[in-house]
Amino acid sequence: MFTYETADQKEVRRFRIAQFNGRMATVKAGEATVTGFVRSVLEKESSTPPCWTITIIPNAPKEAPRPLRPSSRTRPFAEDYF
């Protein structure tokens, strides 16, 4: 799990909407970029200005799809033209 802390209300709203709709969200913190499902959005009550802690469950990056079979190197029905 990846924990992220922010004070940006627009960003918090985006995470809450992603959590509600079951969509993946992407966070870029420094050099790290994490994409995954939002597990929780918690507000720290004792902080001024308001601050939120967001927990994300990261997903492994998807592999590029491979073709099911190799494509033909010759044109189909090429012998019909000769």
Rank of each mutant, 00 (worst) to 15 (best):
M1Y: 10
A18I: 02
P50D: 06
T6Y: 03
E63T: 09
R73D: 14
A7M: 09
T26S: 08
R39M: 04
N59G: 10
K62M: 04
I56Q: 01
N21Y: 08
E43C: 01
F15Y: 03
K28R: 11
D8P: 04
P49D: 03
W52K: 00
V27L: 05
T6I: 02
A29C: 13
C51R: 13
F82V: 12
F37N: 07
N59Q: 13
R14G: 04
P58I: 00
P65A: 02
R66P: 04
P70T: 11
R39V: 09
P76T: 13
A32N: 15
E45D: 11
F20L: 11
R23F: 12
L68E: 14
Q19A: 13
T35M: 03
T3I: 07
I57A: 12
E31T: 13
T26L: 03
R23H: 13
F77C: 11
E63W: 08
D80C: 08
E43A: 01
P65R: 01
S72T: 14
T55D: 02
K10G: 13
S46T: 08
T6E: 05
A29Q: 15
S46K: 07
D8Y: 07
T26H: 06
T48W: 09
R39H: 09
S72C: 11
V38P: 00
M24P: 12
P67E: 04
E11Y: 00
F15M: 05
E5S: 07
T33R: 10
F20M: 08
D8M: 05
T35C: 02
V34C: 04
I17Q: 07
T35E: 03
T35Y: 05
V38L: 00
A32W: 09
R66A: 09
T53Y: 02
Y81F: 11
R14W: 04
R73N: 15
A78F: 14
V41S: 01
K10Y: 06
T33K: 07
S46E: 10
